[in-house]
Design a protein around this nucleic acid. Structure first.
Lengths: 209, 209
DNA sequence: GTCTATAAAAAGATAGAC
DNA sequence: GTCTATCTTTTTATAGAC
């Protein structure tokens, strides 16, 4: 059953959707630098070079805009997780790939990710529920890889839930400094992070150096 | 030169200061659950059972209250780092102690830490500068321990700055779920985290299992 | 110290002309 | 589609009585 919501983006023309995407990206930059609540509709109009009428024509509401920013990040993150699942391989290889994919998104969408990690409590009702479920779904992918590694004996006997939180924190927290223009690329960070983490959870030590 | 600011807490009576502390703690809970900008002065009055006049008598301004919450966290965090520095010992032992101390603060002040990690961009002017400097000072303690471990040969040859970010992310990110009443205590988390991280950066592998 | 009343500005959103 | 004008509510903060 198609949504009755008149602002459903999928019912609009490609041109309309492209304009909307541009508004989402521009607004994400503002929200990231000042905060969601601290950024007024008027500022959004100025930044997007649009009047209030035109802006609302594209976003529906301020919270709708916030949700769109969240979706943009989660779409990319889940696509990365999907690629990893399709590639398969040893748990340690999958974990490293997950890190590559995640840091690539953080590096490519620094503003969106900032908003995502700071302002998710501002989502309400169904938007909040939908977001929480997607986020939880991603976290369970990480846990599943860890569980597989414990089962196969590649990883030592650890708490998959807690270890996933360690991994997620290590990677997600890069949102504070990992951006285009930084001296380090996503891969420059993902590789040493994987080395630390996988060495840290492997059941058998590797050869020295 | 003593500050001319009439709202300088150190110039007030112990009773006044105690009341102010209570207001800070109660308000931190509100800010953590709804966000700083989303919480109005009226809500703060209700939660603290105070009128506007009385509330402003204690906090000076809303941003002053926010700064006080930040200070409460940073005071505790820096005290922990100080204890570690005084204890000394091998870099790996110091790193584990730093983790213990940090997670203890996160576990004990979940609301303050949440506010600290989410709302620091809302600080302006001198308050923002002072906060950034204290935070940076803590991060440099972590880097220094890593550098010492590399120098002594206990850790492999890694980038101290980047490795510190990995460590900080892993630990700070626990603010999302590490709270009193959770199944895990601060130590329950700090120990496995230290095992993962220190194994991950050691220059020589340990004996299996 | 604490209250109530009020100010003064800004918020999100909508209406209706074009 | 886009603009301007306006509505309604809420915001932080202050004034002045008690």
């Amino acid at each position: 059953m198609p949504r009755a919501d008149a602002s459903d983006p999928s019912r609009r023309s490609p041109k309309w959707q492209a304009r909307r995407e541009a508004i989402i990206d521009t607004s994400a930059r503002l929200f990231a630098s000042q905060g969601y609540h601290a950024t007024g509709i008027n500022e959004l109009c100025d930044a997007n070079d649009l009047g209030k009428g035109a802006l609302y024509h594209y976003i529906g509401s301020k919270e709708g805009l916030l949700a769109a920013i969240h979706d943009r990040v989660m779409d990319e993150v889940m696509q990365g997780a999907e690629r990893v699942a399709e590639a398969g391989g040893a748990p340690s290889a999958q974990l490293e790939m997950l890190g590559d994919e995640l840091l690539e998104v953080i590096h490519r969408y620094p503003d969106h990710v900032w908003v995502f990690l700071h302002e998710f409590p501002a989502l309400t009702g169904e938007r909040a529920a939908s977001f929480r479920e997607r986020r939880r779904s991603y976290e369970q992918r990480v846990e599943a890889v860890l569980r597989a590694g414990v089962a196969s004996g590649e990883f030592r006997d650890l708490d998959p839930w807690l270890t996933a939180r360690a991994w997620l924190g290590m990677h997600n927290y890069t949102y504070l400094w990992l951006k285009p223009g930084h001296r380090l690329s996503a891969r420059d960070v993902a590789k040493p992070f994987a080395e630390i983490f996988i060495r840290g959870i492997q059941s058998k030590p590797q050869g020295a150096e």
